[in-house]
Amino acid sequence: MGLPFTVEVIPGGDVASRLQSHLAAPATVAVTCLPHHGPAKTVDLAVELAGLGYRAVPHLAARSVASKQQLAEFMVRLADAGVRDIFAVAGDAREPVGPYAWSLPLIEEIAATGGFETGFAAYPEGHPTVPEPELTELLLKKQELGSWAVTQMCFSGDVLSDYIARLRSSGVTVPIWAGVPGRVRRTRLISLAGRIGVGPSLKFAKRSGSLLRSVLAPSSYDPSRLVRSIETTGAFAGLHIYSFNDFRGLPRN
């Protein structure tokens, strides 16, 4: 694998100790924030990983942050642990539990506090509730405050290539990391994909003949062909690997 990469993990169980057996520090590890976990578990794991020498990137889901005070407390904990990056998303909670209904106000709050580089999400296959022109407009606003973007998980190099070309022509200039699945067991990929907001990518896979076979037929999905396609474009800053906590096939850093 020629591109730099980050690995996304899900809080729960002994994830930190298992990760150490497959990926050495100081690799970059993103920690997702699911509604049923909440941001506190994300921050806890990010602090733990930072203590083990990883470059931890916690996801903070705007709709799951209860108050400005809670956000401030999270940022103090993360800063004290040496965490330098935060990935801000709207989150999958149906209703906000606090003052942040979507990611831009959260990014603004983090930027106003200072001390962190902020990333944000990009959607190569669109968003179920936001039209594409509005998504692009939001990316243009976010890049004024943020530093990079990560795409929703996608199974198609062509889709990703076309998407980044459209972003660049629209004036989005921040580095874009391509979100790809790792070598994940088929059953785990299917069962968890929808829970982290990648359902559209699976629908795309099911419409795509040979792609369907590569995703659903083997016991584990093999991303090698997709990775080669992304590397060939030369347009992406790196790969963001959705591991689903299945670490056996991670590349060596």
Rank of each mutant, 00 (worst) to 15 (best):
G179V: 00
G179S: 06
G179T: 00
P181Y: 09
P181V: 06
G182F: 10
V184E: 02
R185F: 02
R185T: 09
R185Q: 11
R185P: 08
R185W: 01
R186Y: 01
T187E: 15
L189I: 12
L189Q: 02
L189G: 05
I190K: 07
I190S: 12
I190T: 11
L192M: 12
A193N: 02
A193H: 05
A193F: 01
R195V: 14
R195C: 10
I196E: 08
I196W: 06
G197H: 05
G197V: 10
V198R: 00
V198H: 02
G199K: 12
G199C: 00
G199R: 14
G199E: 13
P200G: 02
P200M: 10
P200C: 08
S201A: 15
S201C: 02
S201P: 12
L202C: 12
L202G: 09
L202T: 01
K203P: 01
K203T: 15
F204D: 11
F204N: 05
F204S: 07
R207K: 15
S208Y: 02
S208N: 13
G209V: 13
S210W: 15
S210H: 14
L211Y: 04
L212K: 14
L212N: 12
R213G: 02
R213M: 11
R213H: 09
R213A: 11
R213L: 13
S214H: 10
S214R: 12
S214L: 04
V215F: 04
V215D: 03
V215W: 10
V215E: 09
L216S: 06
A217E: 04
A217S: 14
A217R: 13
P218C: 03
P218Q: 01
S219Q: 07
S219Y: 08
S220N: 05
S220V: 06
S220G: 02
S220Y: 11
Y221E: 09
D222F: 09
D222W: 07
P223F: 00
R225C: 04
R225T: 15
R225H: 08
R225N: 14
